[in-house]
Design a protein around this nucleic acid. Structure first.
Length: 431
RNA sequence: GGAGAAGUGGGAGAGUGGCUUAAUCCAAGUCUUUGCUAAAGACUCGUACUUACAAAAUAGGUACCGUGGGUUCAAAUCCCACCUUCUCCGCCA
């Protein structure tokens, strides 16, 4: 959620919507109409609230006098009848004020975060910038297969039966693929907790609507998550949701910051609107495993932390010896709540292209404001919102794809990356 | 799923209709006195929104005692629904 006060202040200070704050929102597609509407509503909100509060103050004063008189054993009927007359209008004003306030809040929830000044302005994903490329695209002396062909030949991935059991965009992993998936999860969790100092976490895989509002999925992207009918429960689209809301409505001590967690969870996405994209294989499934990195930190440290967090995700790719590149997303391609995002894209020889395998974002105080997560400054000042960051470290299913495709051999077998072998009974290949 | 109990400020814990943002204790902070790993005393000690002021400081107002409704001139206190926690029973990995 953006800061209404800041928005108002900027608007007052001249230049209307042309300053950096609102320009940032415009760059990523929030229309001036919405902003205008918010400003109007905010004014109306303040007016109605003032009226309602004044009326209520008046009523409270009279009620106080009634109490005073009763205690003294005197007659209060004159005031009582006076207050009786006020009652209706006070209530009406209060209802109005509550309504306008709720409307403003609702509208604010639909406005995306403001991009950081270092984010390139762009119109499509083509305007993303390559920050660096690590490793060379893997070369083969034979025609590289796509992961689903490798998987089906080795009889370790079964899409057809998943279609029977559930439906499209699900898969069974079996034998070595299941083992490899599990090895990857273990390897990632071990690396982040032991080497990078994250606190390991397995969160609930089901959350309520408040949590989804807190991280920014709701109200705008409701159709992308699976809803459990007849309840306020939803399957998580990412561990970011439960882990960020771990501190929902809490005020932390500054000394406790930063707090960092790495969380394993399956992720469930209905992917409404993506029909026809990546229909084959494991790339785009309704269910996939992911290891998520998440940090709550002091606002002054969040950009430094963003670099660090991204490097932790990169570490996994490096250890697996997978070629990848680091992209800085432009204003058009960033997620709704992000201020700045790096995507890590892994090389997939079967597809002959780089594909996203991790997305690392700084949300600044966008999520913290929605979830009311603050910290009390050491010097005793007012509580401030923390900054939240998260990134995949990594998407396990896509990592499995990357391993299969980059480590495939001409004879149809797949070599197991060295760092994973301890997790796979020290085997060196899948045959 | 059934029966019962409970949810109050950073923590503990009082408070059954008006004088209550809420006694008291602990923790925390500021100051004072004496002074060497301490003690005593005084004061302070919530959050959000909002009004006045150019702004800050400050002062006023409104709201908040699990959440949401309701009764009443007036609700932490009465009523209803829900949520959470605990205990017992049932069921279950």
């Amino acid at each position: 959620m953006i800061d209404l006060k800041l928005l108002e202040k900027k608007a007052e200070s001249g230049a209307s919507y042309l300053d950096d704050y609102t320009q940032g929102l415009l760059n990523r597609g929030a229309s001036t109409d919405t902003l205008d509407k918010i400003m109007l509503m905010a004014n109306k909100r303040r007016e109605t609230m003032t009226q309602a509060e004044t009326a209520k103050a008046n009523q409270n004063k009279l009620s106080g006098e009634v109490g005073q008189l009763k205690r003294e054993g005197k007659d209060a009927s004159a005031i009582l009848s006076e207050v009786e007359k006020l009652k209706g209008s006070v209530k009406e004003l209060e209802t109005q004020a509550a309504q306008v306030d709720a409307d403003v809040q609702q509208l604010l929830l639909t406005i995306p975060n403001k991009p950081h000044s270092s984010v390139p302005i762009g119109k499509t994903e083509k305007d993303n910038q390559i920050v660096k490329t690590v490793g060379e695209p893997t070369k083969f002396s034979f025609k590289a297969l796509e992961h689903f062909d490798i998987g089906e030949k080795l009889n370790i991935i079964d899409f057809d039966r998943a279609g029977k059991v559930t439906g499209a965009r699900f898969a069974f992993l079996k034998g070595a693929a299941a083992q490899l998936e599990r090895a990857l999860m273990q390897f990632m969790m071990d690396t982040h907790s032991n080497l990078h100092g994250y606190t390991e976490m397995i969160p609930p895989f089901i959350v309520n609507s408040q949590s989804l509002t807190g991280t920014g999925q709701f109200p705008k992207f409701k159709e992308d998550v699976f809803h459990l009918e007849g309840t306020d429960y939803y399957l998580i689209p990412t561990a970011e949701v439960p882990v960020t809301n771990y501190y929902y409505n809490e005020t932390l001590a500054e000394a406790d910051l930063p707090k960092s967690f790495c969380a394993y969870s399956p992720c469930f996405r209905s992917e409404a609107g993506s029909h026809g994209r990546d229909t084959k294989g494991l790339i785009r499934q309704h269910q996939f495993n992911k290891v998520e990195l998440m940090t709550f930190c002091h606002p002054s440290e969040s950009y430094e932390t963003h670099e660090k967090l991204t490097s932790h995700a990169e570490k996994i790719l490096a250890e697996l010896n997978l070629p990848y590149r680091k992209m800085l997303l432009c204003t058009a391609d960033m997620g709704f709540g992000a201020s700045k995002t790096y995507d890590l894209e892994v090389w997939l020889p079967g597809q002959n292209s780089y594909r996203e395998i991790s997305s690392c974002s700084n949300f600044e105080d966008f999520q913290a404001r929605r979830s009311n997560i603050r910290f009390k400054p050491k010097d005793g000042g007012k509580p401030q919102f923390v900054h939240t960051l998260n990134g995949s470290g990594l998407a396990v299913g896509r990592t499995l794809i990357a391993v299969l495709e980059n480590y495939q051999k001409e004879d149809g077998s797949v070599e197991i990356p060295k760092v994973l072998r301890p997790y796979m009974g020290n085997k060196s290949s899948i045959t």
